[in-house]
Design a protein around this nucleic acid. Structure first.
Length: 346
DNA sequence: TCCGATGATTGCGT
DNA sequence: ACGCAATCATCGGA
């Protein structure tokens, strides 16, 4: 709905004062717009219904009755202004028309005036005033749009997720670090667990992926934390149940992992007594902390991040969800002007 | 009050 | 339709 409205607004934002056929498509769009927003049309009832539907579609929760009533009040204000202005214009149009008619009638005594001429004058006047009306409608639409963006834009009432929710999401993310793209079912499951919507889950993963990729060093601590957590959970589960079920970290639910054949070498790290990844990371982290240009990850003493966390090294194992930052080019700087071929890397 | 963290939106590419 | 990248707008701690 939001995008629909937006496209309409964008479409009508062209201020072309093109006066043509009476069934002006632009005018019709404006009228539809105002009708949909409850500015024009029935004085009361319809407008609030449309506003309620819009708010429900945008916000979801129905607890924001205070803001909602505020929004409605403002919308009512706009509607009143619109109607009074419209009335004023209509009245002015009529007055001006009669005035001109009187003038013409007076002039008809001194010179012959054809009815065609009168008709033409009236037509001109009406066109002029209808263009003014259109401007009024347009500015009203803009006002409504601003009002909507002020009240109904979800960014303006953002609330952080609960600690539990971020915990759950992070657990999933870091236990599926090689392929952090939850399926639709997984998203639904996560949404239910976190008491958020599926689209919020999608937003979260989108943000997380991009921000993780942008600055992996910053997330190392977090990654190690959650890796340890899920590993411990898996270990506990393993020790509790002697059943020969395959130990699958992070697959407590029923997430389907595509190509789950070779990924997740984290199990080998489990057979040790502790988690070298965590310790190494703790030690290296202080050195890594050199957030220089994020755009030049290469060519510095600080590269080769992957050994920080062996258990999580699968982020590069299949090169699945990030293509830049070649991992640990051990080879000497063999950069030719145009021959960076890594032929048959397999 | 400032600034990093964070959820949501938008434009673009596929 | 989905993901990415950039951006917006708010939150929350220093």
């Amino acid at each position: 709905y939001e995008r629909y409205l937006y496209s309409i607004y964008c479409g009508l934002s062209i201020r072309g004062a093109q006066e043509e056929d009476p069934p002006d498509p632009q005018l019709m769009r404006l009228d539809n717009m105002l009708l949909a927003e409850g500015v024009s049309g029935p004085e009361k009832g319809g407008g609030s219904a449309a506003a309620a539907a819009a708010a429900a579609a945008a916000g979801g929760a129905t607890d924001n009755s205070i803001e909602h009533s505020d929004y409605r009040a403002k919308l009512t204000q706009i509607r009143q202004i619109y109607h009074t202005e419209l009335e004023k214009y209509e009245q002015a149009c009529n007055e001006f028309t009669t005035h001109v008619m009187n003038l013409l009638r007076e002039q008809s005594r001194t010179r012959p005036i054809s009815p065609k001429e009168i008709e033409r004058m009236v037509g001109i006047i009406h066109r002029k005033f209808s263009s003014i009306q259109m401007q009024l409608k347009q500015s009203t639409c803009e006002a409504v749009m601003i009002l909507r963006s002020r009240f109904l834009d979800a960014r303006r009432k953002r609330r952080n997720f609960s600690k539990q929710a971020t915990e759950i999401l992070n657990e999933y993310f870091y236990s599926h670090l090689s392929n952090p793209y939850p399926s639709e079912e997984a998203k639904e499951e996560l949404a239910k667990k976190c008491s958020i919507t599926v689209s919020q889950v999608s937003n979260w993963f989108g943000n997380k992926r991009i921000r993780y990729k942008k600055n992996i060093g910053k997330f190392q601590e977090e990654a190690n934390l959650y890796a340890a957590k899920t590993a411990v959970a898996a270990a506990v589960q393993n020790s509790q149940a002697n059943s020969p079920s395959t130990p699958n970290p992070g697959s407590s639910g029923s997430f389907n992992l595509p190509n789950s054949g070779d990924m997740f070498m984290s199990m080998p790290t489990l057979n040790g007594d502790s988690y070298p990844g965590v310790q190494v990371a703790a030690g290296v982290q202080s050195q890594v902390g050199a957030p220089h240009n994020p755009t030049a990850p290469q060519k510095g003493p600080t590269r080769c991040i992957s050994p920080i966390c062996p258990g999580l090294s699968s982020w590069q194992a299949n090169g699945g969800w990030q293509d830049e930052a070649p991992p640990c080019s051990v080879t000497s700087p063999v950069e030719g002007p145009g021959s960076v071929h890594s032929d048959t890397s397999n």
